[in-house]
Design a protein around this nucleic acid. Sequence first.
DNA 1: GAAAAAAGTTTCCTATAGGAAACTTTTTTC
DNA 2: GAAAAAAGTTTCCTATAGGAAACTTTTTTC
Lengths: 209, 209
Amino acid sequence: MSDRKKTDKFFSEIMARNKEQEKPIEQIQIGKQLKQIRTKNKLTLDEASKLTGLAKSTLSKIENEQVSPTFAVMQKLATGLNIDIPQLFTAPKKLQSCGRRDITRANEGLSHITSTYEHNLLATQLSNKLMMPYMSRIHARSFDDFGDWIRHEGEEFLFVIEGQVQLLSEFYEPATLNVGDSVYYDAGMGHLAISVSEEDALILWITAQ
Amino acid sequence: MSDRKKTDKFFSEIMARNKEQEKPIEQIQIGKQLKQIRTKNKLTLDEASKLTGLAKSTLSKIENEQVSPTFAVMQKLATGLNIDIPQLFTAPKKLQSCGRRDITRANEGLSHITSTYEHNLLATQLSNKLMMPYMSRIHARSFDDFGDWIRHEGEEFLFVIEGQVQLLSEFYEPATLNVGDSVYYDAGMGHLAISVSEEDALILWITAQ
DNA sequence: GAAAAAAGTTTCCTATAGGAAACTTTTTTC
DNA sequence: GAAAAAAGTTTCCTATAGGAAACTTTTTTC
């Protein structure tokens, strides 16, 4: 139980580390943002004015930060220019990261052992990633080895590499999975994987948030 | 080459299907939104006023939709109440889906065959998911079997189940991967996996966007 | 390269957002 | 349940956003 707690904390920490790219400060220059969107779409102020129903003088003033647009105006901008409002606030360059690569050799992941699982975190060199892959040897044999459901944000994909696994979950009957079988589920639903084969099963687990 | 194109289209379609949950209409009631955030945080107008530096009369008027706040005011709201601006626009309930589950038995995925790969899509019963898992038998033996790099949004995780694989990529030397090895990379970087073992290799591939 | 056209900015006015204080409604205290 | 306190709304004023038209700057035409 206290072991369970520890594991949970461990995962949330790792996940947080993987995501942190959220927003910068709220010091966004909405005018710059708008101008960039308009010019990128090759629109003149007159055209944008027709599309949004706003006076071109208004658009000009917004773009030059002479005026702070009201929410009503921002809605017109969004529908007229066909952008969703959040886009007006997101930092100009949403620099899609590109070119990273991280190889993990068999049995060389970062190990993390609990009483129920022996986790092997993969691709740990990379932070800010969308998925978190790890290979786990399942020691647990019954629900009681845990004390409570595992529950966290996001979605999970489980693939059986060795042995036989039973996926217990809050809203479904236990499902028995053999080598090659896989299951995709919402991690917010209580879930647990236990070994039911003679030897401890080995699975590949991937979490996304 | 035309085969490559087909594959690409196929993937983007699947990915689009998996994501579509974006935004609803831009008919958001920002006042309702704000009131919900404030009450959920158990703040009075006076407290919110102190936190944001806005007059409580202003807050009241915004909440009752008597006034359309300017962007400047929205920034104060965001920093003061410690929310990121997009949150002011997102529909009230961001219903975290919970309780879905989809099992795919070994060799029972949805098959999609090209000249280079034999894909087996997993968990296809579920849409709107963060990850897209598939198992692929790699027929390809060299870069020339493709004609061009594979490149698409998002990140990818590759795990070798059978055989020996070489991951070719735009910015790295080819990497040879054996059973149990895995690699995580940005899919925006040109990439290809080819078999280098006698028999065609089998890999598990997971994409997230 | 001068004239015309297009694109963008500024001016000036009106409509409305933001704030202080008065007021009303709701909740708490005893 | 009356009095006091707290929470929220409305009023009234000032500051500023939004729009039409004049104006300036930039681009295109010949």
